[in-house]
Computed example of a mutant assay.
Amino acid sequence: MQKRTSKHVAYAIVGYIGVSAISYFILMKFGAPFVAHQPLVEHASATERFWDFQAASLWGFVLIGLIFLITRGYRNREMRMPSRETSKKELSLLLGYMAFAQLAGLGLGKAFGFHAISFHLAGSIYGNHEHLKLTEMLVWASYNFIVYAVLPVVYLMRKKGYTLSQLNLVSNKNVLRDTIVILAILIIESIVQLEGLSDALLDLSPRQILIGGFAAFSFNLFGTAIPTAVFLFAILYPRFKAVTNSAIVPIVLGGLTYTALHFFDSWMVFRSSGALLASLSALFLQYFMPGVVKSVLTDRTGNPWVHMWAYHVIVPHVIIDTPHFVDAFDILK
């Protein structure tokens, strides 16, 4: 088993390097289309962005090492999962549902005159230089919460007979132990993001931080953090483990699925084949490693809620997105 795990780790690293190399050449050729409806940026900017992605990925590897160090004494961290055959059938259904939900989010967003509904609110991560209306924010958060958290749980409980415990939504694990993991990663990641990613939060007044931070926390909690925790890590991830019977493959699949859930983020550009290839490259480089880190946190603790508090709703979304909400709501100093 140890030999097989080591082989899978090697494959995953080589695969990431290979995809990164291909993405580099694509970004050099077509530019980096990070904001929809804006001209592709010049190649120099694409080069800088590529190496920013690589620096973030390198930090992701460091963070994974820290997670293993913090959780080295964990025991009985296994998640509850169905049999392999049941998981196969349910995965096909759930992944098909996910694809339909993404397309429906695209259609619904356009029908209301909004941006496509994906797993990040428009303007998150890369600004789109637009003031979002409260209506769009509410529709985005409500859609994702209902479609990715409420409906799958209701279906699996009523039609398949699962309990909340069997769906990993309530935990009998050591709460104190998980809290220590959350606080350790939260503190470390907060410092790194404020120092290396964006310190715009520190330029806001206390009033703006309080009101804007509460808005960023609330909308992102229901619009992306809970849907990710429930749909991807409480429901899909245990089935990835059951089907693959591997320590590494489910983590990679978690990273890829997390990436796919952001396919229609507002900065994606589909107006040409080159823009699409560049957008897909940026999408992978932006989201795969964070998805892997979330997968590792879930796998090591056996608790899908740990990653949400340690590495999602507060960092990055409160730290990075609070200025966006301050701007959207015109919160004065």
Results as ranks from 00 to 15, higher is better:
Leu176Phe: 13
Ile13Tyr: 03
Pro323Glu: 00
Thr298Trp: 09
Ile187Asn: 11
Leu221Arg: 01
Met289His: 10
Lys173Met: 06
Gly254Ser: 12
Trp140Ile: 00
Ser45Gln: 12
Ser190Phe: 03
Tyr311Gly: 02
Thr224Leu: 05
Glu136Ser: 05
Ala122Gly: 02
Asp52Lys: 10
Gln208Trp: 03
Lys29Ala: 12
His324Arg: 13
Phe264Asp: 06
Ala229Met: 13
Gly96Tyr: 06
Met289Asn: 04
Ile125Cys: 00
Leu204Thr: 01
Ala275Val: 01
Thr228Val: 10
Leu66Glu: 07
His8Arg: 14
Lys159Gly: 02
Leu277Asn: 08
Lys160Asn: 13
Thr244Met: 14
Leu95Gly: 00
Thr71Gly: 03
Tyr11Leu: 13
Ile320Asn: 04
Ser57Pro: 00
Trp140Val: 08
Leu132Asp: 06
Arg239Met: 12
Tyr74His: 13
Val306Gln: 09
His115Tyr: 15
Thr301Gly: 08
Tyr24Gly: 08
Arg49Glu: 04
Ile314Tyr: 09
Leu63Pro: 01
Asp199His: 14
Phe233Met: 07
Leu232Pro: 00
His43Leu: 11
Leu132Pro: 03
Asn303Glu: 05
Ala247Val: 06
Leu138Glu: 02
Leu91Phe: 02
Met289Cys: 04
Gly212Glu: 04
Ala122Ile: 02
Gln286Pro: 01
Asp52Thr: 12
Ala55Ile: 12
Leu156Gln: 05
Val292His: 02
Glu48Gly: 13
Met81Arg: 15
Asp52Gly: 15
Leu283Ala: 07
Ala229Glu: 07
Val192Leu: 10
Leu194Met: 13
Ile188Leu: 15
Phe263Thr: 06
Ala122Tyr: 08
Ile146Leu: 15
Lys3Gln: 15
Ile185Lys: 11
Gln193Ala: 12
Gln38Leu: 12
Phe53His: 12
Ile180Gly: 05
Ile331Ser: 02
Met81Glu: 13
His312Arg: 03
Ala116Thr: 09
Gln2Tyr: 07
Val243Pro: 14
Thr257Gln: 06
Phe264Pro: 09
Ser124Met: 01
Asp199Phe: 06
Thr86Lys: 15
Arg49Pro: 07
Val318Cys: 04
Val9Trp: 10
Leu156Ile: 03
Gln193Asn: 11
Ile191Cys: 02
Gly254Thr: 03
Asn144Thr: 09
Leu202Glu: 06
Phe233Arg: 02
Gln208Glu: 14
Glu195Ser: 14
Leu164Asp: 11
Met137Arg: 10
Ile70Gln: 03
Leu169Tyr: 01
Leu151Cys: 01
Ala116Val: 00
Thr257Arg: 03
Asn76Asp: 15
Asn76Met: 07
Met308Lys: 11
Met28Asn: 09
Asn220Leu: 00
Thr301Asn: 05
Ala200Trp: 01
Gly223Val: 05
Leu94Thr: 01
Arg75Pro: 00
Gly291Lys: 04
Thr259Tyr: 07
Ser272Arg: 09
Leu93Cys: 00
Thr163Ala: 11
Thr71Lys: 00
Phe61Leu: 13
Phe214Gly: 03
His131Phe: 11
Gly196Ile: 13
Ile13Asn: 08
Arg207Lys: 15
Ala116Trp: 04
Phe233Ser: 00
Glu136Gln: 14
Phe325Lys: 06
Val306Lys: 05
Leu236Ser: 10
Leu221Trp: 08
Glu85Thr: 10
Ala278Cys: 06
Met1His: 11
